[in-house]
Write a protein that binds this DNA or RNA. Sequence first.
DNA 1: CGGACGTTTCGGTGCCGGCCGAAGTGTCCC
DNA 2: GGGACACTTCGGCCGGCACCGAAACGTCCG
Lengths: 216, 216
Amino acid sequence: MEALTRVAALLADRTRAAFCGALLDGRAWTANELAAHARVAPSTASEHLTRLIEAGLLVEYRQGRHRYVSLAGPHVAELLEAMTSFAGPGPQPRGLRAASASEAMARGRTCYDHLAGKLGVALKSGLLELGVVNGDLAITEPGLVWLKELGFEPSKRQVVRACVDWTERVPHLAGAAGAHLCQVFFERGWIKRIGTIRAVVLTPAGEQGWRELGLT
Amino acid sequence: MEALTRVAALLADRTRAAFCGALLDGRAWTANELAAHARVAPSTASEHLTRLIEAGLLVEYRQGRHRYVSLAGPHVAELLEAMTSFAGPGPQPRGLRAASASEAMARGRTCYDHLAGKLGVALKSGLLELGVVNGDLAITEPGLVWLKELGFEPSKRQVVRACVDWTERVPHLAGAAGAHLCQVFFERGWIKRIGTIRAVVLTPAGEQGWRELGLT
DNA sequence: CGGACGTTTCGGTGCCGGCCGAAGTGTCCC
DNA sequence: GGGACACTTCGGCCGGCACCGAAACGTCCG
């Protein structure tokens, strides 16, 4: 109860929440980058970062005159996600299956360590059709085999989780499997970052790769 | 991000958090009861309740001159739980299997709709030994049969969840199964509320019933 | 009807916390 | 070494919000 207010107060501030939102791309940002992103003075940002780090929400590693910070782990991303999706007007399935694949995937992004946005939703739909996951977004047995063929190694972390993205209101694929697929796609050059922040696009190689995997 | 700060700000206040903590017993409280519990004036409590209700965290039903409020559902309890357990110093398994059963169960309470405190931990340990759940607190196949014999009907709600209690730092059994078992125990007179708030004790009938089920 | 009680509305007060700018520290690079 | 740069510390300012008491409203009950 006491503990609850501590966490909540940290996230109740507009600026600190903006920091966390930016860090949801899973990368490390410098203090100045975050200050510019949230439109506050560097001194203000510095104080906020100290508090977030002391609370265990962020971790830092210093390199020369830079102070890099990032989320302390997937559990933080999951907490942020849980709180955010709670506030929203609830999941609206949005039943449109529309549009050609490449069109639908046009705008994607990362959500901490997995794919989100339209790209993430397309991935989820593809995995659903392939039978890798079922309608409740739970892994199936053939799905686990399928993942292992892509180099996936089960660990303590939950294999699949449903994540409701901040902008799209559609649940997509998170958890260890979501993170692994995202990593594999980066390694194969199937997706790449574009612009400055979390945006991600499917490359031509990626379109072909997805087709070969049977993902729409 | 905007949405995040809205929820967080609501829970960042000491008084509102105290309300939610009290309501975690799953029952409906009146405005005055909550005001007294949090040591604020009734007028102050009234304003807080209005805000919590508008945000969808609580629901009210009015009866005469009383305004009863309760948590809006399990999803709220789960959010509170997620935020609270985050703030703590992390789960410390606390390997002591000590003490006679009735002694260890002496102090129990409800956590929204399931058992918590030492009683909840004892229940979890018993179910673990029975093989109803495994070490990761996931339901097993024989466990599901066992539950169905106690009248459990699977629904959309997740069958078992791990819940870290506010006071004990040990994970215990929540989710649909935890709620069902708690309800059955109440119906059978195995547990009963004591004192004014969330405290629960195992009755003599309950001790016998638990033994017959094989729960320590 | 009238009094007790639970709740609500409204001003007014006080404090907490986020913000900035200025000055200081440490690092990099020419 | 010296200047540019990233970050930090410290005062001081200011707005927002939690709080209360007083008064009003509605319900219950004798």
